[in-house]
């Protein structure tokens, strides 16, 4: 299967959209080579602004430019775009429903070797808590393109979470269409319902296959939109399941696992297990080593499911 980084798809989609939509401007904070907004910069140097290492100011300028009529994409690593600039996102961008799309790359522990200071495992939690904010987390490069296009056409603030590594482009052959109100039911199976987001959805499919070989049948639901949450599909999908497993490359506190638990505990209580980063800071290592260490790779997840199912 072809592998591609979501951020690569983001940069390419920006170039495509920039040709069609003259109101698009792109801001970056000295990471344009990593976030891939440099692809847009090469094509449209007059509409790309490098704000230097100043993420808060980048999002303030982004706000101002949106007020003056621009469709603004602003990028940095998730740690800084969401973490450092949170209060600006909250009080200015989200409060005033500004047309600013925060596209944060290098989220989660898959950043790897850079270590704990750069591994944003809390960004979904803190962005999800802000009113008016939409939080989207694509599964692969194919869906990233669709999500970026959707955001460019939809007025208002977005937080779009991308990862660093190349990852399998598996949704393309399924010809999925992104719809924030419609979660993707990728596999159907009665006993277990696996709900996942981001690059963990591919892992979830692998988990489902491995379980199937052991005669355990699971469904796989991909929720790229963590907020708004498609509660309808969620509730339908878990109806017959004896166990709900939520997978994400994010802290087990406040992310998709929490969003699902909040919904189900009120509307359809189920036994839930959250697969994610435990309540600790990350560390340096290769991303596959870290996925193993924190128990979020295929084998570790299957092990855990078998133990509790």
């Amino acid at each position: 299967m072809i592998k591609k980084a979501m951020r690569e798809a983001y940069g390419l989609k920006l170039v495509e959209l920039g040709q069609k939509n003259q109101t698009i401007v792109v801001l970056d904070a000295d990471l344009s080579g990593s976030t891939k907004t440099n692809l847009f910069q090469k094509q449209f140097p007059d509409r790309h602004f490098n704000m230097g290492i100043a993420e808060c100011n980048m999002l303030l300028f982004a706000s101002g430019m949106s007020i003056a009529g621009k469709t603004v994409f602003a990028s940095s690593f998730a740690m800084f775009a969401a973490g450092r600039a949170w209060e600006i996102v909250r009080n200015t961008i989200a409060h005033d429903k500004l047309n600013v799309k925060i596209v944060a790359t290098h989220a989660g522990i898959s950043v790897g070797e850079d270590g704990g200071s750069h591994q944003a495992n809390e960004d979904i939690a803190i962005m999800r808590a802000i009113p008016n904010m939409r939080v989207l987390c694509p599964a692969d490069a194919y869906e990233t393109g669709q999500i970026i296009e959707y955001a460019s056409e939809t007025e208002g603030p977005f937080y779009i979470r991308l990862t660093r590594d190349s990852s399998p482009v598996f949704l393309e052959e399924r010809k999925t269409v992104f719809n924030p109100e419609k979660a993707l039911v990728l596999e159907e199976g009665k006993e277990i319902c696996i709900i996942s987001t981001g690059l963990m959805t591919y892992t979830a499919l692998m988990v489902q296959e491995l379980l199937k070989s052991k005669n355990i049948f699971a469904s796989v639901i991909h929720l790229s939109s963590i907020k708004p949450l498609d509660e309808k599909t969620l509730l339908q999908s878990v109806q017959k399941a004896k166990l709900v497993v939520v997978c994400e490359e994010h802290s087990i506190i406040g992310g998709l696992g929490s969003a699902v638990a909040e919904c189900l505990s009120e509307k359809s209580p189920k036994k839930i297990t959250r697969i994610g980063i435990p309540d600790v800071f990350g560390q340096s290592g290769k991303s596959d080593e870290l996925f193993d260490y924190y128990g979020i790779n295929i084998n570790k997840i299957v092990e855990k499911i078998e133990k509790i199912f």
Binding site: N57, A62, S63, G64, M65
Partner: peptide
């Protein structure tokens, strides 16, 4: 924050 937003408006104009 208003100061930064104002500067962003100025850049756009």
């Amino acid at each position: 924050q208003g100061f930064g937003v104002a500067a962003g408006i100025a850049l756009s104009l």
